[in-house]
Amino acid sequence: MIVLVLHIFTPHIEAIKADGATEALINSICIENEDYGFCNKIIHEKLKVPTATIKELTSLIIYTTMDHANDTYIFIDNILREWPVPKETTGLKTCHEVYNRETNSFLEIRFLFSKGEYGRMGEAILSTAKILEDCRGDFLIPPYKEPLIEKKRVMRILITMSAVSGHMIKNEKASLISSVVTAQFFNI
């Protein structure tokens, strides 16, 4: 009975089935990523309609990336309020600042995107990959094992998704042949 009640009251996120052209765009973005399945899942969960252009997908990705950076910033903020060990506090404060800068950068990226300044947008996305490197993330903070490792991995994936879709818009191409974008971001 309890399981049934939980099932009824738990919100379920159902992925939208994208049409052929939209699915091809999603595949072009995700094939460039370190975790194709995760990339594909994120886009499908956020997709509201079955048909989307590369600009609509890029907008969705930019908003998702900005939300993740902000959520991670708040997560670190909460840990800093509770964590008394100075050794970890220094690293956490560095990561706190990193995710604050990431959030602000993606606010700027969103603005550049809205103005159609795709070249500048691409440069700004490149800078976010470099910002992320400053957060070590392998802290042992009870009750978490390493709370920022997975958040940093997700951020790296979202930045790559932003870079690839932004590159596709800038170059007016619906797909990429090889990892022309990702290699320059994360030394892949």
Rank of each mutant, 00 (worst) to 15 (best):
S178M: 03
I74P: 01
F38E: 13
C95N: 11
F75D: 06
E108T: 14
E102R: 12
A183S: 14
E82W: 01
A21C: 00
S105I: 02
I188G: 04
L57E: 04
I169K: 06
I54K: 09
S175R: 10
I8L: 14
A69L: 08
I169V: 15
N187V: 02
Q184Y: 05
L4W: 09
H7C: 08
R101V: 07
E108H: 11
I54P: 01
I31A: 11
G20I: 13
I131N: 08
N33M: 13
K41Q: 14
T89V: 15
Q184I: 05
L148S: 02
K55I: 07
I42R: 12
I125P: 02
P147L: 01
G91C: 08
L25Y: 15
T72H: 11
L158T: 04
E56N: 03
G37T: 12
V180D: 15
K145L: 10
R153W: 02
T94F: 04
V181W: 07
A18N: 02
E102K: 09
I54S: 10
L132V: 02
H7T: 07
K48G: 02
F9Y: 10
K48Y: 03
I26R: 14
T64Y: 10
L80Y: 00
T22C: 03
C95R: 07
L132E: 03
E108S: 14
E108C: 08
V5N: 07
K115N: 12
L47C: 03
Y36L: 13
V49I: 09
N104Y: 11
N40W: 09
A18F: 07
K145D: 13
T51C: 05
K46A: 12
I62L: 15
N27Q: 13
L47E: 01
P147Y: 00
N78E: 11
Y99R: 04
L25W: 04
C30G: 10
S179T: 09
I62D: 08
K87R: 14
D19V: 06
H12F: 11
H44E: 05
E123V: 06
S28I: 05
I29R: 04
K173G: 00
K41H: 09
F75C: 06
I62A: 13
A15K: 15
I177R: 14
K170G: 03
